[in-house]
């Protein structure tokens, strides 16, 4: 079941077009990088593909059908700032189980300490929180994972650790990965294909 974007366009209420005429396709098992500097609309594309925003033009199709609005979405998005993506009033155990109940092996592969489960988000660093956000998104129904600058705010060691685990799980489950980043060296490391958004014509867009 491929994930497709057909001539998608998006703008916020009364605002200028942030994304226009963008087409894209990915199949299970593929790893595609979306490269672009900040302000190039790549985060918006990530949100459109994950169904966080509805396109103002064109459509996003999963397996030839429009994205489901309800139910567990087979396309999951992991965002740049984990501290905003977890409920500050929940213990992390609750946060991770909101998605599914991962086994100990998966927790281990992300280097998660059992003690963290009973912690509150403000007691952990963003590198630690991001591991929870990634696992939460990797439930059994997930087919595509979109990582929007997922490890940009993390140190290199944690970055490598998270990607190692994600790539292993993606390969085992034949997931499709869309890796959104402004860092070419990261994308070059493991992407099968890289889409350069800088080469899209986006005249009229200014610095963010």
């Amino acid at each position: 079941m491929p994930l497709k974007a057909l001539e998608v366009g998006f703008h916020y209420y009364n605002g200028p077009w942030v994304v226009s005429n963008f087409s894209f396709m990915i199949n299970p098992g593929q790893i595609i990088g979306l490269y672009g500097p900040s302000g190039s609309g790549k985060s918006t594309i990530a949100r459109l593909l994950a169904g966080f925003e509805k396109p103002r033009a064109g459509q996003v199709l999963l397996d030839g059908k429009p994205m489901p609005v309800k139910g567990n979405n087979p396309v999951q998005l992991v965002l740049q700032h984990p501290e905003k993506a977890v409920n500050p009033r929940w213990q992390l155990e609750q946060t991770i189980y909101e998605g599914w109940r991962p086994n100990a092996e998966i927790m281990d592969s992300f280097g998660i300490s059992n003690k963290w489960l009973k912690r509150w988000p403000n007691e952990l660093s963003s590198g630690e929180l991001q591991r929870f956000c990634v696992i939460r998104a990797l439930g059994p129904e997930t087919r595509y994972l979109i990582a929007d600058e997922m490890t940009t705010m993390l140190d290199a060691v944690t970055q490598a650790q998270i990607w190692e685990a994600v790539l292993r799980i993606a390969a085992r489950r034949n997931l499709g990965l869309i890796v959104v980043s402004h860092e070419m060296s990261l994308l070059n490391r493991f992407c099968h294909e890289i889409v350069n958004l800088d080469s899209y014509d986006r005249s009229g867009l200014v610095y963010n």
Binding site: V157, Q159, S185
Partner: peptide, 13 residues
């Protein structure tokens, strides 16, 4: 661990 180097991590936290 940098992607432009070996991209290897350390276990643990």
């Amino acid at each position: 661990a940098l992607p432009q180097n070996d991209f290897v991590s350390l276990p643990g936290f």
